[in-house]
């Protein structure tokens, strides 16, 4: 199944893109996807990164076809 992944802040720089469509196995959870992408793009401080699935900041869910997953790092500039 296909999911759309959006990257924010410095994660977009690690990934070299702000958005991509990925093919993932059915049964993949948001956390599984996070682990995959953290390894693929060498995202640092992964524990601090929050995921939003379909605009909800709760990553304890199984993904479905067409879901949108946002990778959100904390940042503090001002």
């Amino acid at each position: 199944m296909k999911v759309t992944v959006k990257y924010f802040g410095m994660i977009a720089e690690s990934a070299g893109r702000t958005e991509e469509v990925l093919e993932v196995a059915s049964g993949t959870s948001a956390k599984d996807l996070k682990d995959l992408q953290v390894r693929k793009y060498e995202i640092s401080d992964a524990e601090s990164v929050q995921l939003a699935v379909n605009q909800n900041l709760d990553s304890k869910v199984e993904l479905n076809e067409g879901d949108e997953v946002a990778f959100l790092p904390p940042f503090a500039g001002g």
Binding site: S48, P74, G77, G78
Partner: peptide
């Protein structure tokens, strides 16, 4: 929102920022 913080505190001084961005926020 962020129960765990990161050590990557990167300031606007370090990264650069357009004046309008904090202006809007």
């Amino acid at each position: 929102l962020f129960p765990k913080t990161t050590r990557q505190n990167i300031s606007c001084e370090a990264t650069g920022v357009l004046g309008v961005t904090p202006g809007i926020l």
